[in-house]
Protein backbone atom coordinates (compact mmCIF):
# COMPACT_ATOMS: atom_id res chain seq x y z
CA UNK A 1 0.00 0.00 0.00
CA UNK A 2 1.40 3.38 -0.90
CA UNK A 3 0.95 7.06 -0.32
CA UNK A 4 -0.29 7.16 3.26
CA UNK A 5 0.47 10.02 5.59
CA UNK A 6 3.79 11.75 5.24
CA UNK A 7 5.77 11.90 8.48
CA UNK A 8 6.05 15.67 8.32
CA UNK A 9 2.41 16.26 7.43
CA UNK A 10 0.79 19.09 9.33
CA UNK A 11 -2.87 18.36 8.63
CA UNK A 12 -4.20 14.82 8.75
CA UNK A 13 -7.57 13.04 8.71
CA UNK A 14 -8.60 9.44 9.42
CA UNK A 15 -10.09 7.18 6.79
CA UNK A 16 -11.15 3.52 6.58
CA UNK A 17 -13.43 1.24 4.58
CA UNK A 18 -16.86 0.32 5.88
CA UNK A 19 -17.19 -3.33 6.86
CA UNK A 20 -20.51 -4.09 5.17
CA UNK A 21 -19.73 -2.79 1.69
CA UNK A 22 -16.18 -1.49 1.65
CA UNK A 23 -17.30 2.13 1.11
CA UNK A 24 -14.60 4.73 1.83
CA UNK A 25 -15.45 6.54 5.07
CA UNK A 26 -13.92 9.32 7.18
CA UNK A 27 -13.96 9.95 10.91
CA UNK A 28 -16.00 13.03 11.75
CA UNK A 29 -15.85 15.56 14.63
CA UNK A 30 -18.90 13.93 16.24
CA UNK A 31 -17.21 10.51 16.33
CA UNK A 32 -19.09 8.98 13.40
CA UNK A 33 -17.91 7.39 10.17
CA UNK A 34 -19.16 9.53 7.29
CA UNK A 35 -18.92 9.04 3.53
CA UNK A 36 -17.94 12.57 2.50
CA UNK A 37 -14.36 13.76 2.84
CA UNK A 38 -15.70 17.29 3.42
CA UNK A 39 -17.20 16.12 6.73
CA UNK A 40 -13.96 14.58 8.02
CA UNK A 41 -12.28 15.98 11.09
CA UNK A 42 -8.86 17.42 10.29
CA UNK A 43 -6.17 17.30 12.97
CA UNK A 44 -3.50 19.98 13.10
CA UNK A 45 -0.15 18.57 14.14
CA UNK A 46 1.21 15.12 14.90
CA UNK A 47 -0.09 14.92 18.44
CA UNK A 48 -3.63 15.91 17.46
CA UNK A 49 -3.50 13.36 14.64
CA UNK A 50 -2.59 10.52 17.00
CA UNK A 51 -5.40 11.57 19.33
CA UNK A 52 -7.83 11.59 16.40
CA UNK A 53 -6.73 8.12 15.31
CA UNK A 54 -7.14 6.83 18.86
CA UNK A 55 -10.68 8.25 19.00
CA UNK A 56 -11.46 6.51 15.71
CA UNK A 57 -10.32 3.16 17.08
CA UNK A 58 -12.30 2.35 20.22
CA UNK A 59 -12.47 -1.28 21.30
CA UNK A 60 -15.33 -2.11 18.93
CA UNK A 61 -14.18 -0.24 15.80
CA UNK A 62 -13.82 -3.46 13.82
CA UNK A 63 -17.57 -3.96 13.98
CA UNK A 64 -17.93 -0.98 11.66
CA UNK A 65 -14.79 -0.36 9.61
CA UNK A 66 -11.55 -1.90 8.34
CA UNK A 67 -8.02 -0.67 8.83
CA UNK A 68 -8.38 3.00 9.88
CA UNK A 69 -5.32 5.12 9.12
CA UNK A 70 -4.14 8.70 9.02
CA UNK A 71 -3.51 10.46 5.73
CA UNK A 72 -2.20 13.88 4.84
CA UNK A 73 -4.52 16.66 3.77
CA UNK A 74 -3.65 20.11 2.46
CA UNK A 75 -5.29 23.44 3.04
CA UNK A 76 -6.87 24.64 -0.16
CA UNK A 77 -8.18 28.12 0.49
CA UNK A 78 -11.11 27.73 2.86
CA UNK A 79 -11.26 23.95 2.56
CA UNK A 80 -9.03 20.91 2.76
CA UNK A 81 -8.14 18.37 0.11
CA UNK A 82 -6.27 15.03 0.21
CA UNK A 83 -2.57 15.47 -0.49
CA UNK A 84 -1.90 12.28 -2.49
CA UNK A 85 -3.30 11.00 -5.76
CA UNK A 86 -4.34 7.83 -3.96
CA UNK A 87 -6.46 9.63 -1.37
CA UNK A 88 -7.87 12.01 -3.98
CA UNK A 89 -9.09 8.99 -5.94
CA UNK A 90 -10.51 7.33 -2.82
CA UNK A 91 -12.39 10.52 -1.96
CA UNK A 92 -13.91 10.84 -5.43
CA UNK A 93 -13.96 7.52 -7.29
CA UNK A 94 -12.11 6.06 -10.28
CA UNK A 95 -10.77 8.77 -12.57
CA UNK A 96 -11.70 6.58 -15.53
CA UNK A 97 -15.35 6.11 -14.47
CA UNK A 98 -16.75 9.46 -13.42
CA UNK A 99 -20.18 7.82 -13.27
CA UNK A 100 -19.06 5.71 -10.30
CA UNK A 101 -18.06 6.34 -6.72
CA UNK A 102 -18.60 9.41 -4.59
CA UNK A 103 -18.11 11.78 -7.52
CA UNK A 104 -21.18 10.27 -9.21
CA UNK A 105 -23.27 10.51 -6.06
CA UNK A 106 -22.25 14.15 -5.63
CA UNK A 107 -23.29 14.88 -9.20
CA UNK A 108 -26.67 13.22 -8.69
CA UNK A 109 -27.49 15.28 -5.59
Amino acid sequence: MAQHAAKRARFQAVTANRLSDGEVVYFSPDNRWVEAFAMAEVADGAEAAETLLARAMPADFEAHVLEPYLFEVLEDGQAYKPASVRETIRAAGPTVRLDLGKQAEAKAE
Binding site: M1, T95, R97
Partner: peptide, 14 residues
Protein backbone atom coordinates in the same frame (compact mmCIF):
# COMPACT_ATOMS: atom_id res chain seq x y z
CA UNK B 1 -3.91 0.49 -11.21
CA UNK B 2 -4.50 3.29 -8.75
CA UNK B 3 -8.04 3.85 -9.97
CA UNK B 4 -9.07 0.71 -8.09
CA UNK B 5 -6.17 -1.20 -6.56
CA UNK B 6 -5.04 -0.94 -2.97
CA UNK B 7 -1.46 -1.90 -3.85
CA UNK B 8 -0.97 0.42 -6.82
CA UNK B 9 1.39 3.39 -6.87
CA UNK B 10 0.11 4.95 -10.06
CA UNK B 11 -2.79 4.79 -12.47
CA UNK B 12 -2.54 2.43 -15.44
CA UNK B 13 -5.87 2.73 -17.21
CA UNK B 14 -5.78 6.46 -18.07
Amino acid sequence: GLDYCNLANARSIP
